[in-house]
């Protein structure tokens, strides 16, 4: 189960509102490479994993991603606080505002709602961990792009933290994949899926 800790993993304290930036950053809340997908992906893949190490890595990183989802939500919330209708129109935030006011809704920057089709659970440890490594790189690339588009130092400080976590997670998923593969038949690592043996 999960128990909430009433604190963020890393401080989010944005001095200036900026709805234009909020429209971009919301992609890491509910976009195709965002933190909602990351957490649901890892926490769902756990169930069919063949080793305790992979179960642990997916549980711990998936839980951390829920904390990142909260941080990105905090960014969007703080970037859109105290806006006037005039500011909303001026910054092109009106298309979002009309459906969500200044609530935080899981969608991509282009307005597409979060979709479970952006993730997979194949039930195959090599396929899943390889997807997880790709997911960390995709999220890292999005944070790179946010840093290219944003000139707000308060926002960039938080984005750099989140970006670095993708690098660390990539390393851990890679190490977990090494361990899993070393336990498989070295003459043919694809001989079978250890979560669904041949003789079943």
């Amino acid at each position: 189960m999960f128990i909430y800790q009433k604190k963020l993993q890393y401080p989010v304290k944005i001095a200036n509102t900026n709805p234009t930036l909020a429209k971009i950053i919301i992609s890491q809340y509910g976009g195709p490479n965002g933190e909602l997908g990351a957490s649901i992906r890892y926490l769902s893949q756990r169930f069919s994993m063949p080793s305790d190490q992979v179960k642990g890595v997916l549980t711990d990183i998936g839980t951390e991603e829920l904390g990142h989802l909260e941080m990105v939500g905090a960014l969007v919330h703080q970037l859109t606080r105290d806006l006037t209708p005039e500011e909303i129109k001026k910054h092109g935030f009106d298309a979002y505002f009309v459906d969500h006011t200044v609530g935080v809704y899981p969608q991509a920057a282009a307005g597409v709602p979060w979709d479970a089709l952006t993730i997979n659970v194949t039930g195959d440890v090599i396929a899943d961990l390889t997807e997880d490594m790709a997911a960390e790189q995709k999220a890292r690339a999005v944070y790179d792009n946010i840093l290219r588009l944003s000139d707000d130092p308060d926002v960039n400080n938080v984005i750099r933290f989140l970006r670095q976590r993708e690098v660390v997670h990539y390393q851990r998923f890679g190490e977990a994949l090494n361990t899993v593969q070393e336990k498989l038949d070295q003459s043919n690592v694809y001989y079978m899926n250890p979560a669904f043996p041949m003789n079943r």
Partner: peptide
Amino acid sequence: PWEYTGKA
């Protein structure tokens, strides 16, 4: 945790 009501 997500609230900050500073400057803006």
